[in-house]
């Protein structure tokens, strides 16, 4: 698997796939799951990131999500942007089918 995040990433968010349909989701600050990266909680620093990862466990145990992991993001003008191409594609949809994926379903998906 491609590397999700790199050592020393300052800001990270938590993503996973929803069990029932595989849709990409993000963990929010109020302890919910959202389909939009813009709703994601951004953890700054290693400790906060580890705490964020731990907060995914109940969702895994409740069979709501699978394969949770942290990935690097950056904040730009108050918007959350994925750092890697992989996560940008994951949060938006295939770059070769702009009519599919979140880019077709959510407004302003690229932040």
């Amino acid at each position: 698997m491609a590397q999700h995040t790199r050592k020393g990433a300052k800001e990270q968010a938590l993503t996973a796939n929803r069990l029932i349909d595989g849709v990409v989701v993000y963990l929010t600050a109020d302890g919910k799951l959202s389909e939009s990266l813009q709703d994601a909680e951004v953890a700054e620093g290693k400790e906060a990131a580890e705490a964020l990862l731990t907060r995914a466990t109940p969702f895994v145990d409740a069979n709501e999500i699978i394969e949770p992991y942290l990935f690097a993001v950056e904040l730009e003008d108050g918007r959350i942007r994925a750092v890697s191409v992989r996560e940008t594609i994951r949060q938006a949809g295939p770059t070769v089918r702009l009519d599919l994926g979140k880019q077709a379903e959510l407004a302003d998906v690229h932040g």
Binding site: N17, D21, G22, V23, V24, I66, R86, I89, G93, P94
Partner: peptide, 9 residues
């Protein structure tokens, strides 16, 4: 034959 990929299964 069911994999999990980037956006979906």
């Amino acid at each position: 034959g069911l994999y999990l990929q980037l956006h979906a299964y």
